[in-house]
Design a protein around this nucleic acid. Structure first.
Lengths: 207, 207
DNA sequence: CTGTTACCGTAACATCCGTTCCGAATGGAG
DNA sequence: CTCCATTCGGAACGGATGTTACGGTAACAG
């Protein structure tokens, strides 16, 4: 019975090795041999665990989604209010430390790899749509009086902005320090009337 | 004398072939042979024009910057007002048609390739900082009474949002139609008090 | 027309890739 | 202990990659 557990654990180890190689060496050096070396094994084990390289990448992509989703759900549960939840969830999507910066690079690497891989692009779209729906739900909870259209528009602005700044900061951390990113998020939330100060009275904050 | 012109034209042809392969086949299939095939020549010509593959990619990256910069400057010159200029320049940075969608994919491909290429990452940072300064300048012109800090924060929000939505839409055009992107931009400009309606009276639009 | 030079297609090279396959360990069952 | 199934290291294979070197060819000078 520990067999299947071992197999699953090995799959996770290999997937984390995929992330590591993707973050440190990029997509061009993301070879089965490099992954095996990062995981401390040989290509034999990799190819026994996964039928081919494509399946290895797909599993790593899926695991990345599960891990980030768990983190987001924990943040959402811990938050004291809808607006705090929205802010916390958006914050973790930016590149504020080495951890999230590497995640942004890995995310982008998978996206670049998905151009030629139908399963990867399908997985990417599934995950992105789920992410969008989550932020729409959080936005609706943060501004209950908004129409569905306005919620969708503002939620799109928020996910696009955080994803964009994550990519920018991942590629040039010195030019996009965490403080700038956080200020940007707060300024945007305030501009849309989603700052915590007005919690509960919706967009009446200015009147 | 037509020698250098031909050489330059060939370099441009090859660089456009790089874009084409990058957009249609992705970074993993971006080989010298694939580029040569897309350009309708052989690998011999490619390697006579550029010392190695790295130099070929770098030239293609630089040319992409020059082309988009020329387009942006034309839009800026044509615009009737600072706010119209800001909006037009941001609009062209999103993925609204097949042309800009492919550009977003290519942009992302170069970024993924830059992880292992010091010259590519340096070029990327140069271009991004220039882009950021341009949008800051346009934002300052659109809201003359703002402090430099606020200009920088809002400009960052705008470039991050447009870049982010371009990447989203490039990977999933059906989920992010042009109308959604445009609505998102206008809603954000309005939220920051940068919509054309209030042109000239700065952020007094709400009082 | 002849010789020279620059240009570029072609073929080769060493290397690296994903994948396959064989055999040696390992560990549990009888 | 023996036997067998499973697991995995490691070598090997066909193919692709970046790069180099050679050879032909076209254009231009004299």
């Amino acid at each position: 019975m520990s067999r299947t557990a071992d197999r699953s654990a090995q799959g996770e180890t290999l997937s984390r090795a995929v992330w590591s190689v993707l973050a440190e060496q990029g997509l061009e050096r993301l070879t089965v041999r490099a992954v095996a070396a990062a995981a401390g094994c040989t290509t034999g084990l990799v190819m026994h665990r996964f039928p081919n390289r494509q399946a290895l990448l797909l599993h790593a992509r899926e695991l990345l989604h599960r891990v980030t989703r768990a983190r987001v759900e924990a943040l959402e549960a811990e938050a004291g209010s809808p607006r705090a939840a929205l802010r916390a969830v958006l914050l973790q999507g930016m590149a504020l430390d080495e951890q999230t910066r590497q995640e942004a690079i890995v995310w982008m690497g998978f996206l670049a790899a998905a151009v030629t891989d139908d399963e990867l692009i399908a997985e990417h779209r599934r995950n992105n749509r789920a992410w969008r729906e989550r932020v729409e739900r959080l936005t609706a909870a943060a501004a209950p009086e908004w129409t569905a259209g306005r919620v969708a528009t503002v939620a799109l602005a928020l996910i696009a902005m955080t994803e964009g700044v994550a990519v920018y900061a991942a590629a040039d951390p010195a030019a996009f320090p965490p403080a700038d990113q956080e200020r940007m998020l707060d300024a945007t939330l305030t501009a849309h009337g989603l700052d915590a100060a007005g919690e509960g009275d919706g967009e009446q904050r200015r009147s």
